[in-house]
Write a protein that binds this DNA or RNA. Structure first.
Lengths: 262, 262
DNA sequence: TAAGCTGGTGAATAATCCGTGAGTTTTTAT
DNA sequence: ATAAAAACTCACGGATTATTCACCAGCTTA
């Protein structure tokens, strides 16, 4: 559950974004949103918060109630307590001195203009990215991808399915071969968008002359049997695929995609 | 001197920003700007760059010459060589799928809309902030080296495995040779990320002309036998490696990585 | 109903990678 | 200057990985 700490003085923005923020898929669970309309109230709350209330991310308006510095004072209070808390600004004053101060002096993780097309989506993307970056830092640089029961360590390229490491189906003592690993990673990254043979070839930096659809299919086969092997050759994963989860074929575009099991 | 790597396919943007970027006060010194108009040219350049040319920051356009993926392929080439290089996108397509891909999948440090008020200043602020963050991160990374049963004294360069000092396998009275020691250190530092031949060559400040994969393998062999020797030539360490711990081959990209035994 | 397409499969082949030993060049120390 | 050490090259075999091929089943369309 992602905990968001949000300070915003104008009700219409709160109305507009709160539902979006609550329902955004940040970590696969519902989010907890704590909103304050006044900087003072926010600061009082911060003063009494303990580590168990520690938010994962703060969203601030810089200019509030006529004061340029209102948001920054909240930021300082937060950073004093949790120096590594990522802070995003959400403001109407992009391109102004306020943005400059936020970015260059107040350790803002990001500064998002309220007036831009598709703002709800942009907000979610950026929050998600900030949380991901934060998590990567905390895990000792062990960045990872996670989707349901699947976990990919993007540095060591180990893949875990329900906690079990995926191995090479032809030789269970060896790790999964490189190309299947890469393909799986791309599929999960782009999930739930399908990846065509062409796109995969591009991502693998392989020549389309060399990388054919037959080829792609073969690697998918390897992956599926690796999953099956991780479950003890029960064929459970293959079934899952046929039910439209896991590694699924797209229909008629030489494409596959990844669909989380949860 | 801040080194910026910039890929932008439209001349008018280059004309508009290059003077600004060159003169921006990023670190008190004049900046070095390397601009490419074509993604292919940029990628070729990246392939031949060594660590001494390593840019401090990359500025990319995502959508170039009609392809959505052009900028991302440059990003991948850069990150492959320097996984920690901050990458900023400068694009006309904010709020679109391109921004989403950049932020959520391509580890963009930032995504800046070209069309916004005061764009020159915003660009400079954000570049400056990204550089600052990068620097702060680098300073925080200096920690002692210890990984499972392995211990490296970074001052005296002695290496201990299970408390036993690693010696030169060809002549047990002599210490481990310098290059293997360095390689081991880099592997452990970057653990569990694999290091390709190219990356090792960069880290050793050796010419890629001189430092080949055969070479890398040779040093790995030396290291493995040094570990074995420290255990009394039992071959215990070699076994460990085959089980995916210790010094492990990555299976692809001519790379090895270090995986702690604990 | 047959032809055309997609997707799954097993086996065979081709390509690549990795470990190794022995030899050569370069660097370093005496 | 000389010898030892270190770094680097080269070539080979075995193993792993990637690709290709042939075939089948199911579905859609002519």
């Amino acid at each position: 559950m992602a905990k968001l700490f949000w300070v915003e003085d104008q009700s219409h923005w709160i109305d507009r974004f709160s539902a979006v923020l609550k329902q955004a898929d940040l970590d696969g669970e519902p989010n907890h949103l704590e909103v304050y309309k006044f900087p003072e109230a926010a600061k009082q709350r911060i003063a009494v918060m303990t580590d168990q209330h520690k938010p994962d991310l703060a969203l601030l308006d810089a200019h509030m109630n006529g004061s340029d510095q209102a948001g920054f004072s909240v930021s300082r209070a937060l950073l004093k307590k949790w120096p590594d808390l990522p802070i995003l600004y959400l403001s109407e004053h992009s391109g102004t001195e306020i943005e400059e101060q936020a970015i260059t002096q107040n350790d803002a993780q990001d500064f998002i203009a309220k007036h831009q097309r598709n703002i709800e989506a942009v907000l979610c993307w950026r929050i998600k990215a900030a949380l991901k970056k934060r998590q990567a830092q905390q895990l000792g640089e062990q960045a990872g991808l996670r989707s349901g029961s699947l976990e990919i360590h993007t540095d060591s390229w180990e893949v875990f399915w329900k906690g079990v490491k995926l191995m090479n189906p032809h030789n269970p003592k060896r790790p999964l071969a490189p190309t299947p690993r890469k393909i799986l990673r791309f599929l999960v990254e782009r999930s739930p968008r399908p990846l065509s043979t062409e796109q995969i070839a591009d991502l693998l930096e392989a020549d389309l002359e060399r990388f054919s659809y037959a080829n792609y299919r073969q690697h998918i086969k390897t992956l599926r049997s690796a999953f099956d092997a991780a479950e003890g050759h029960s064929g459970e994963f293959s079934e899952l695929c046929q039910q439209g989860r896991g590694i699924v074929t797209f229909g008629d575009a030489h494409a596959y995609f990844w669909k989380s099991d949860s």
